[in-house]
Design a protein around this nucleic acid. Structure first.
Lengths: 199, 199
DNA sequence: CCGCGTAAGATCGGTATCGTACATATCGTG
DNA sequence: CACGATATGTACGATACCGATCTTACGCGG
């Protein structure tokens, strides 16, 4: 999966369930006026095509790769067959679905109540969790689009985070230097979403 | 159910599944700083305690009655028993769960991309769908809290809507005069959420 | 019919973010 | 090494919304 790749387009039928091994895939909403925003972010902790867990046949929205990685694609038929054989698989898939709903709820509250600094920090932390190492590729432009902010706003936040020693960045490569300092700048939403995924 | 009643508190165990007949119940998020916002809105189209559909034992958040109504309470054990007997019940419950996820996603995008006018109009339309008749009781203060806006902002929007002839209001009683005009002021999110609930 | 509580109307400055635009720096490629 | 593409820095006015506060109006219960 390379940045910009569209895993599923809006309204697509779920033919495969996609399990990322690393990297970040975003579920994108698109409004009539053309503006877009990230609805949720999925990595190795989950899978794409979770609509099938709720008996759906079509995906919930356009999913676009943000940070490169690999993924396993399983045909839906095989997933359904496996679900019949392995109860633990069903449990795990339900667990992620539940965590994902919790993520959606927390993100909604976060978008309403927290500022750009907190939300950008949260996004970077969530991405960091889903890659190996401390470096990954994402442009300020991309983050701005995902969070429905201006690039200038994201730029100001990133400059602050860099001067605080939390991150460094250079032409799209973000380096997480001090994760704890990044946590200080993020809101509680990061931790809450994390907890929901674990429990 | 009377306005202000707490159906489930944050972190409560789902002992009953609650099916509203009319009225509006809001799922509320509460942040560390004490600020709150509505995560989702549920009426007769769905039920409270849908966490059990995903194998959960605890609710997703505090649910508070906003517009009065009646509801049926079913013990979880009975629901589980019924699910084993009636496939159609499972299907219906899954259908709502799916629609609810779609609602969460749309609300998230809406909160990020649309303005106070559109969001207040959307909320009023969603409430209108869930009551009988054109009048229901909700204060501007309550709407402001749910959408994480100031009461003054909601007041300005309501004044506009009233002068446009879409609604009238008086001491907490909202009267929907011209639903189409309200639709004009709302964003596409209302229709999209509606469609997700029907399909 | 009086007083208190609730709902609504209105206004102030303040600020986070927007929309747009232009400037700069670095990289990859021919 | 030149050049276009990409990423970042920065500036400007505009604006939507905030936080606080004060006022007005209504309605219910004593």
């Amino acid at each position: 999966m390379r940045p910009g790749d569209v895993v599923f387009d809006e309204g697509a039928t779920v033919t495969h369930v996609v399990f990322p091994h690393e990297g970040v895939v975003s579920l994108i909403a698109r409004m009539d006026n053309g503006r877009t925003v990230e609805k949720s972010l999925i990595g190795s902790e989950g899978f794409l095509g979770f609509a099938i867990v709720m008996g759906g046949k079509t995906v919930f929205g356009r999913s676009v790769v943000q940070v490169a990685g690999h993924a396993s694609w399983l045909p839906v038929a095989e997933v359904h067959a496996a679900l019949l054989r392995y109860d633990c698989l069903r449990e795990e898939m339900l667990r992620f679905t539940k965590a994902h709903v919790a993520q959606l709820m927390e993100s909604l509250a976060c978008a309403s109540l927290h500022n750009a600094q907190q939300r950008v920090s949260r996004w970077l932390l969530q991405a960091h969790d889903r890659v190996s190492g401390n470096k990954f590729h994402i442009t300020q432009e991309a983050v701005a689009t995902l969070l429905a902010l201006r690039r200038a706003t994201v730029n100001a936040v990133c400059a602050d985070l860099a001067s605080a020693g939390a991150i460094s960045y250079h032409r799209g490569t973000v380096n997480v230097i001090d994760r704890d300092r990044l946590l200080d700048n993020a809101c509680e939403c990061y931790g809450r979403i994390r907890m929901a995924a674990i429990s």
